[in-house]
Design a protein around this nucleic acid. Structure first.
Lengths: 246, 246
DNA sequence: GGCGTCGCTTGACTATTGTCATGTTCCCGG
DNA sequence: CCGGGAACATGACAATAGTCAAGCGACGCC
């Protein structure tokens, strides 16, 4: 199998139109003029990764921006003691590594495929040279970066101000399309990862799910039923200090 | 007093050279060509704020990038229940609001002066027009933004992987100049804010300080003595699960 | 088709943190 | 110099989350 760079980091493939279409719809590219998009697509490196494969590791220096076309990718940090902190989880149409790629600094996190993945890598020199011809590209990159910044801020707020069960409730609510009545959703990746993403242990996640039964949530394998969305939202935003019935 | 825009948001003042010098050394400006720096300085709005004064609030739309010249500023989020989550605390030479200013989107956080402050505001139109002439500006802004991103990632890791006392230990270590032997530092702002910044209640911070006595830390008012920096670092990075002597 | 691994759940126990109440000290304004 | 209030410390208690251990069940591999 053709290993690019001779490293065991993903197998190269040739992009089909369907894959390019996904890339075009990504937050990073969708607001750029077509001409630039085509340039970027034609210089991109396309790879697929198996579940568990490493995409890059902390401290490695950044050479590309990554756009997920299919599958799920987690960004995480290892603390000196070996504890893993999941920083974010990305899927189809999302991109990461923007701010790092342009500065040639080391990644602050590691990235790993948590399911089979297809990823498009845009080499940073391509991006930089294009940016010199059109500052609009810079704005686009800033937009993506800001989205990440925003999501990190939200996570911080949640960790600091909510209990585990409440964070799980918000997680479920984000999965729902509708915003009232009942809803059924599939959990997008396994519970161990969900636990990590929400800053808790798998055991605590299990218990959080049990607790949510009281506010009309039923979990079966990776399938979740929410009987009353507003009720769940109330729970998620309620003050843990108030003695909520229970 | 001359309220700019007729709002009660800071008093305008005319910048002295000393203040401009601080601005020039800020991460945001220091790598830019002199010519651009002068343009930005000459278009900047200079204001001072009293302790407790609001600089901007969440949801307000961003119109400028902010550079702290003196004093301390906190960025925080209010959860629906009224709990406050401190996202970051900035001081002399640091800037915030870069990513938001360029997109004209609402701030995800509120900003408040926690001590008397002097702040330089660079209106975003000035920045944007300059960016169109020189994409290097975009890179500079991305650099600042990346620094914030990185610090948020570190905070997330700490919150997810360390106990309160360990976070306090890291906080103290960041305050030290030296990296071995003993050290004395002043706590830069009051303990309530430190507690917020580290994601805990003031009571927990008090207890964390007591605990740190066991690893050679003495706190007296806002003065801290660390008798052995490597020992403290070991403590901060040790695994809470291991039964560390105690 | 059996079997082992791994993800997941549950229970018992411990540790950490938040909450509430109380008391001290310090700072600021009369 | 004397209150009054805010910041801070401390104790008792409750709630929450982590740890350890055991057990279940699905999936893949031989």
């Amino acid at each position: 199998m053709g290993r690019v760079f001779g490293r065991t980091k993903g197998d190269a493939f040739v992009a089909h139109e369907a894959q390019k279409a996904i890339a075009r719809q990504s937050l990073l590219l969708k607001s750029l003029p077509d001409q630039h998009v085509e340039t970027l697509l034609s210089h991109a490196i396309w790879r697929q990764y198996d579940r568990g494969e490493t995409i890059f590791v902390q401290e490695e220096s950044a050479q590309a921006v990554h756009v997920v076309l299919a599958g799920w990718v987690k960004l995480f940090r290892m603390s000196p003691t070996g504890a893993e902190a999941v920083v974010s989880v990305f899927t189809r149409g999302e991109s990461f590594g923007e701010a790092v790629a342009l500065r040639n600094v080391p990644y602050p996190v590691s990235a790993e495929a948590v399911s089979a993945c297809e990823i498009m890598h845009i080499p940073s020199p391509v991006l930089i040279s294009l940016m010199k011809t059109d500052p609009e590209i810079g704005i686009s990159i800033l937009a993506s970066t800001f989205t990440h910044l925003h999501s990190l801020v939200s996570q911080l707020e949640q960790l600091k101000a909510q209990t585990g069960a409440q964070r799980v409730a918000e997680f479920l609510l984000n999965l729902c399309d509708c915003d009232e009545g009942a809803c059924e959703v599939e959990l997008p990746y396994d519970k161990m990862l969900i636990a990590g993403r929400l800053g808790m242990k798998p055991e605590s996640l299990s218990r959080a799910f049990s607790r949510l039964k009281a506010v009309g949530v039923k979990i079966n394998r990776n399938h979740a039923e929410i009987s009353n969305i507003p009720q769940l939202r109330d729970y998620a935003d309620s003050d843990p200090a108030d003695n909520w019935g229970r």
